[in-house]
């Protein structure tokens, strides 16, 4: 359970933080290698460059949202509203641009408005969580409904179609043989990884997750930092919306529903503790790559979607179980 500002009871022994992180990622990476090997053995279509790159196209939206989710979960928070923010941003993008709509902005301007709205939605989450002290789970549960409701209300269930050709480059095009959006994802992975591991800001997020009160007493502006990461989460949902609309060439108010659970699953699978305080971008990347490759590989091996989600659920529980087990062993030693 995510308790925003509660000191954590279950801290792992005395081993240095980096040590644990390293171990978790190594374990995960081994699981990933194992999964890839098994899947490659069961279908010769799986381990091909074109298939793997194509999977990059499909995982970008989840990936973009999972990155700030890692920040948030490290601080002991959670953001359930990301899927709904994606929905409202997609709708507003289309609505602002719609040549037969009331605004008829240039598409570039509509994209900027949409990204700004995403950031604003995240900012509202952050402000409610920090200034009013409503726990993140409830705040974002409420805004999950609210933002989706805005998407439905604004769109009146009408979809907007017929975007110009250049707009599809991001979601369907390629740059140097690699899907365009994968470059965007890689960029944000690098940026967030550096922020989390190499900056004072990133270090502070761990401190907040471990002991918020302590972090505040040691001079970290905890409130400000939390607001920033929720706003960032909103912004990234807006980015994901932009890419999503470009990929599927239309806007619908139900876009991105259920995205929050996929993103959280990726983050948690990546070894970030839901209680806060530990986690890494590398882990999250392995997490969402593993989930996407499982979905793809199982399908290629002839498993249907319903079977696949059973496997993914099982892998999620088992991976955390193995992690816990090994960590306890390590700590005992």
């Amino acid at each position: 359970m995510a308790a925003s500002s509660h000191p954590i009871e279950e801290r792992q022994g005395s081993s240095p933080l980096t040590n644990i992180l390293l171990r978790q990622e190594v374990i995960l990476f081994l699981i990933l290698i194992l999964a890839v090997t098994l899947l490659a053995l069961s279908s010769d279509k799986f381990l091909t460059v074109s298939n793997i790159l194509n999977q990059g196209r499909l995982l970008t939206e989840i990936g973009l949202v999972a990155l700030p989710m890692t920040f948030i979960i490290i601080t002991g928070g959670i953001d359930l509203s990301v899927g709904s923010i994606l929905g409202v941003c997609a709708i507003v993008l289309g609505y602002m641009w719609n040549p037969s709509g009331p605004f008829q902005l240039p598409l570039e301007a509509a994209i900027i408005v949409s990204l700004a709205l995403g950031t604003l939605c995240g900012l509202v989450n952050g402000l409610i969580i920090v200034y009013i002290g409503v726990p993140p789970l409830i705040t974002t549960l409420a805004t999950l409904a609210l933002y989706r409701g805005l998407a439905e209300g604004i769109s009146q269930a009408r979809s907007v179609r017929g975007y110009p050709e250049w707009f599809f480059q991001l979601g369907q095009g390629e740059v140097l043989g690699v899907p365009t959006q994968l470059w965007v994802l890689v960029f944000f992975v690098i940026v967030t990884a550096i922020i989390l591991s190499r900056t004072v800001f990133g270090r502070s997020l761990y401190a907040i997750g471990n002991n918020e009160l302590g972090a505040r007493f040691s001079g970290i502006p905890t409130g400000l930092y939390k607001i920033i990461i929720y706003a960032f989460s909103g912004f990234m949902s807006g980015m994901a919306a932009w890419i999503f609309v470009s990929r599927v060439t239309t806007t619908r108010s139900d876009m991105g529903s259920g995205l929050e659970l996929d993103a959280i699953a990726a983050v948690v699978l990546g070894g970030t503790s839901i209680f806060g305080g530990t986690g890494s971008i590398v882990g999250t990347v392995i997490g969402f790559v593993l989930i996407q490759l499982l979905k793809n590989g199982l399908s290629l091996a002839g498993v249907t979607t319903d079977g696949t989600i059973v496997v993914i659920g099982t892998v999620l529980i088992l991976a955390i179980l193995i992690n816990n087990f090994i960590q306890r062993r390590t700590n005992a030693a």
Partner: peptide, 26 residues
């Protein structure tokens, strides 16, 4: 799993949600 194996309940039930949903249709 929550009390003895110390897996956070959100993780256990997130996994279980997938398992039950997919299993039911299967």
């Amino acid at each position: 799993m929550v009390a003895y194996l110390r897996i956070p309940s959100i993780v256990v039930t997130l996994g279980l949600l997938s398992i039950l949903k997919g299993g039911l249709i299967t």
